[in-house]
Design a protein around this nucleic acid. Structure first.
Length: 519
DNA sequence: GGTGCCGGGAA
DNA sequence: TTCCCGGCACC
C-alpha cells in the first residue's frame, strides 16, 4: 500500500495537515548502507527536545521499522542526494523515455555529479546503462501522480511508434545485452502489485494463465456488438492466439498481448499524412487490427461508408478513435482489459476485489460517429498530440488513433437512454473537432460482466447520483492509490464519469462545431 | 453519515 | 501549476 503524507497507513485517518508522519523518505535499511524507501511512521522527540528520532517503516513488504536521526534520512526536509554518494547497487528512479523507471546505480561520480544507472525498461530484454545527472536521479519514487507522469511522456514520439523512438532518445543509453525486442510497457498508473506482475511477466515470458485470461476477456469483448453498422465478428475469436503471435508493439499498452497495432507504422510525414487525408478526406492508411488479417474480417468493410459521403469511425471512451470495427474492438478490449486486469488477476479469495467486480458492472462506452467528407478530418496537428493516458490505462497508440492531450475535460454526449464519455479538445491546441455531425451517433454501452459468460446490459443507461461509480466506490479507501487523480484531489471523477451534465456538455459540443479552420 | 466535488489555499 | 483539503450539497 502506498502511503501518503497526511494519511496514516492502513487506517485511512487523516492526520493534521502538514504532518510529517507518512512522509516518504529513504534511510539505510541494512548494513550495506543502501537506502531503502519507507515512510515516517512516528516521530519521537527526546524529553529535553534535544533530539528527534524518526521511526521509519520500510516498503520492503515486511513492515520492518527502524529508528533514525534526521541526519540519516534522505528525502524532503532531510538530506538530499547531493549530500551523499550513492553506492553501487543502490535502487534509484530516473525518467526514461518520459516515464519513471527504477534502476540500480553502477557508479556515482560526485565530481561530475553524474550517476551511471542500469535500468531494464519494459520492452527491453537486458539492461541499459544510462548516465544521468544527480539531479535527475531519485531514490524515492516520484510522488507525482501516475497520470501526471504520463503527461511528461513525449506522446508524439510514442504515437509515432517508429524505431527512431529509441535512437532519437536523448538519453545517453548504451545497450548492454539482450535484444531490442520490445515488450509492452506498463502504464504509470498501475499499482504496485501490478508492477510486480510485470516483473513476473518478464521472468516467465508471457504466462499461460494470462493468455487464458486475455482470451477469455477477449471473448467477452468480441461478443459485444459494435453497432447496427458493424457486422458481427463473433466466432472469430479463435484468432486469439499466443500473445507473442499478436502484436508486440512498443506500445504503452500495459500488457501488450493485445495491441491496437499489428505492424509497425511507417513514420508519419507531412506529405503522407496530407495525402492520406486528401481526396475524400479520409485516410488511406488501413488499420489492420491486431494480428488479424483481412481474411479474418472479410465481411467487415475496411472503412465504413454510409450515405455516399459519410464514414463511420469509433470513438473510444479512452478518447481515441479508430476507423476499423475489428481494430476498434481490440482497442476497446485493451482499454477494458487494462482497466480490469488488476482485478482479473486477483485470486478468487480476494473478497473485496471480487465483490467489486461482481457488484460493479463497469461500463465502457464508445461512440460511433459519422465523418462527413466535407469535414476536415483530423489534421497533422494531431500527430503531436498525445494519447491521453486515461488514468494511465489503455491502449497502444495506433496510427489511426487520434489522440488528444486535453483529457481533463470530459464530454458526455447523451442520446436517449445512453451516454458516452468523450473528450473535448480544448485549450490552445488547434484541434479540429472531428465530427461532421453529432447526429446519428451510435453509442453502445460496453459492460463488463462476470467472465462466466457475457451478459448484455438491459439496465437503464443513465445513472442517478449514488449509482455512479466513482473511484472511491470502485476501489475503496484502501486502494486510494488506484483512484484517478481527480478523485484523489476530491475533484470530479474523470474515470467513472457521471452523466449529470450531459445535456449541457452536449450543447457545448455543438458550439464547438465547426471548429476553427474547418469550413 | 457517506459521498461527490466546488472553491480556494499551500507549495 | 500541482496538490491538497475544508466545506457544502446531495443522497
Amino acid at each position: 500500500m502506498r502511503h501518503r503524507n497526511g494519511l496514516i497507513a492502513g487506517a485511512g485517518k487523516r492526520l493534521a495537515k502538514r504532518s510529517i508522519i507518512g512522509t516518504r523518505v529513504c534511510a539505510p535499511s541494512g548494513d550495506d548502507g543502501k537506502l531503502c524507501a519507507g515512510i515516517i511512521a512516528a516521530v519521537k522527540t527526546a524529553a529535553d527536545g534535544s533530539e528527534t528520532g524518526y521511526s521509519i517503516r520500510f516498503d520492503d513488504g515486511t513492515g520492518s521499522r527502524r529508528e533514525y536521526r534526521a541526519s540519516e534520512l534522505v528525502g524532503p526536509g532531510f538530506q538530499t542526494l547531493s549530500d551523499l554518494r550513492l553506492m553501487a547497487g543502490q535502487r534509484v528512479y530516473i525518467t526514461f523515455n518520459g516515464r519513471e523507471i527504477c534502476g540500480d546505480v553502477i557508479v556515482h561520480r560526485p565530481d561530475t555529479e553524474e550517476v551511471r544507472v542500469s535500468i531494464m525498461p519494459h520492452g527491453h530484454e537486458g539492461s541499459i546503462e544510462v548516465i544521468k545527472k544527480l539531479d535527475d536521479v531519485r531514490v524515492l519514487e516520484s510522488r507525482k501522480s501516475a497520470r501526471l507522469m504520463d503527461q511528461d511522456t513525449d506522446f508524439a514520439r510514442l504515437a509515432d511508434m517508429s524505431d527512431r523512438k529509441r535512437s532519437s532518445s536523448s538519453q545517453n543509453a548504451v545497450e548492454i545485452s539482450g535484444s531490442r525486442k520490445r515488450r509492452p510497457s506498463s502504464s504509470q498508473d498501475q499499482d504496485e502489485s501490478r508492477e510486480e506482475e510485470m516483473k513476473d511477466e518478464d521472468d516467465d515470458n508471457e504466462p499461460k494463465e494470462e493468455e487464458m485470461t486475455e482470451c477469455t476477456a477477449a471473448l467477452v469483448l468480441m461478443s459485444l456488438s459494435c453497432s447496427p453498422h458493424s457486422p458481427s465478428i463473433q466466432g472469430r475469436i479463435t484468432r486469439c492466439q499466443q500473445p507473442e503471435s499478436l502484436s508486440t508493439s512498443p506500445s504503452t499498452s500495459s500488457e501488450g498481448a493485445f495491441s491496437c497495432r499489428s505492424s509497425p507504422s511507417p513514420p508519419l510525414s507531412e506529405s503522407s499524412s496530407s495525402a492520406a487525408w486528401s481526396g475524400r478526406g479520409l485516410p488511406s492508411i488501413v488499420d489492420e487490427g491486431i494480428g488479424l488479417t483481412d481474411d479474418d474480417f472479410e465481411d467487415v468493410p475496411k472503412r465504413k461508408k454510409v450515405d455516399g459521403e459519410k464514414y463511420i469511425f469509433f470513438f473510444c471512451f479512452c478518447l481515441s478513435y479508430i476507423f476499423e470495427c475489428p481494430s476498434f474492438k481490440f482497442h476497446m478490449f485493451v482499454c477494458w482489459y487494462d482497466f480490469y486486469r488488476p482485478r482479473l488477476d486477483k485470486s478468487p479469495s480476494d473478497d473485496c476485489t471480487n465483490d467489486s467486480i461482481d457488484d460493479h458492472e463497469e461500463e465502457f462506452y464508445y461512440t460511433e460517429v459519422e465523418l462527413g467528407a466535407a469535414s476536415s478530418p483530423p489534421t497533422l496537428s494531431h500527430r503531436d498530440m498525445a494519447r491521453p493516458p486515461h488514468e494511465g490505462k489503455g491502449c497502444a497508440p495506433n496510427k489511426m488513433i487520434i489522440i488528444y492531450p486535453e483529457y481533463q475535460k470530459t464530454l458526455i454526449i447523451p442520446r436517449p437512454g445512453g451516454a458516452c464519455p468523450m473528450n473535448i479538445p480544448s485549450g490552445t491546441t488547434t484541434v479540429n473537432w472531428p465530427f461532421a455531425s453529432l447526429n446519428g451517433q451510435k453509442q453502445i454501452k460496453m459492460m463488463y460482466q462476470n467472465l462466466g459468460g457475457p451478459r448484455f446490459p438491459n439496465s437503464p443507461m443513465r445513472k442517478a447520483r449514488g449509482e455512479t461509480k466513482k473511484c472511491r466506490k470502485v476501489y475503496g479507501m484502501e486502494h486510494r492509490e488506484k483512484w484517478c487523480t481527480q478523485c484523489k484531489w476530491k475533484k470530479a471523477c474523470t474515470r467513472f464519469v457521471g452523466s449529470q451534465e450531459n445535456a449541457q456538455l452536449a450543447r457545448e459540443v455543438k458550439e464547438f462545431w465547426p471548429p476553427k479552420g474547418v469550413s
